[in-house]
């Protein structure tokens, strides 16, 4: 059995130690916010927060999480970033959005007043195939209190 803490709750799951965190979240814990996109750490749709840092849960073996805090979009409880994404209508199909929100949340927790460069640099690893990147950027600006569109 492997123990891990997700959104403040302790869990014990019966998984092989190399199982990606993403599979455990979705298949064992029923937390379906984080998405499987590429499975190779190239798209960012599986992004969650571990110990305050954004990580790619598809490349995170569940056995490395002992004693660490995992947060998923289900644990945010409607934060400012989520509201800003809704207000800017940043989602088209929505598949990438949970990962975008998690990465943006991690950014704003560390850097509440990011520059445009900071935002673009930080989000550059998360891809949106629908092409709503401009709305996503506007949502992050709005969440950072910088107004939305620009």
């Amino acid at each position: 059995m492997i123990r891990l803490t997700v959104n403040g709750q302790q869990h014990e799951v019966d998984a092989e130690p190399d199982t990606p965190l993403l599979y455990v979240l979705r298949d064992d814990l029923g937390l379906n916010g984080a998405k499987f996109g590429c499975g190779l750490g190239q798209c960012g749709s599986c992004t969650v927060i571990v110990d305050g840092q954004p990580v790619l849960s598809c490349l995170m073996p569940v056995s490395v999480l002992s004693g660490r805090q995992v947060r998923t979009i289900e644990g945010l409880g409607g934060n400012a970033v989520q509201h800003a994404f809704a207000e800017e209508q940043a989602a088209q199909c929505g598949y990438c959005i949970a990962g975008m929100v998690m990465r943006a949340t991690a950014l704003l927790e560390q850097n509440p007043h990011p520059s445009e460069h900071d935002i673009r640099e930080h989000l550059s690893l998360n891809l949106c195939r629908c092409g709503t990147h401009m709305r996503i950027l506007a949502a992050v600006r709005r969440a950072a209190g910088q107004g939305g569109k620009s």
Binding site: E16, L40, P61
Partner: peptide, 18 residues
């Protein structure tokens, strides 16, 4: 090694796409 298998194997493992 579970860390290699879970973190690296998707690209660097035997016959991985990369």
């Amino acid at each position: 090694n579970p860390v290699f298998a879970g973190a690296c194997g998707g690209c660097h493992g035997v016959d991985a796409p990369m």
